[in-house]
Amino acid sequence: MNAPLIVDGLHKRYGDLIALRDMTFHVAPGEIFGFVGSNGAGKSTTMRIILGVLAPDAGRVLIGEDVIDLDLRRRIGYMPEERGLYPKMKVGEQLTFLARLHGMETAEAAESARRWADRLGVGSRFDDDVADLSLGNQQRVQLAAALVHDPDVLVLDEPFSGLDPVAVDVMSDVLKEKAAEGIPVIFSSHQLDLVQRICDRVGIIARGEMRALGTVEDLRTRSGLTLEVSGPRTDTAWADHLPGVRDVEYGETTRLLIDPQLADDQQILAAALEHGPVHRFATSAPSLTELFREVVSA
Rank of each mutant, 00 (worst) to 15 (best):
R83T: 03
E82H: 10
R140T: 05
L95M: 07
N39V: 01
D118M: 03
G276N: 07
Q191S: 00
L62H: 15
A19H: 05
S38W: 00
I63N: 05
G9W: 08
H190R: 08
G208N: 10
R222I: 10
P286W: 15
M104C: 07
S230M: 03
M79W: 15
H241P: 14
D157Y: 10
Q142C: 04
K90C: 05
E111Q: 05
R13I: 02
E93G: 15
M171F: 13
H102R: 06
R211W: 13
N39C: 01
G162V: 05
S189R: 11
E249D: 05
E31C: 06
A41E: 03
M23V: 07
I49W: 06
V296Y: 15
R246M: 08
G92R: 12
L143E: 08
L154P: 12
G37F: 09
A131E: 04
A55I: 06
D235L: 09
F25H: 09
D164M: 05
L242N: 06
A167Y: 12
R115Q: 04
F33D: 00
E31G: 11
L192G: 02
H190Y: 10
R222M: 06
K178T: 02
R255A: 15
D16P: 07
I258N: 04
R13L: 00
T254V: 03
E177T: 15
H11F: 14
I49M: 05
L242V: 10
Q261A: 01
P87Q: 08
D129N: 14
S172L: 06
V122K: 03
T283K: 12
D157T: 13
L143N: 11
P277I: 06
L163M: 04
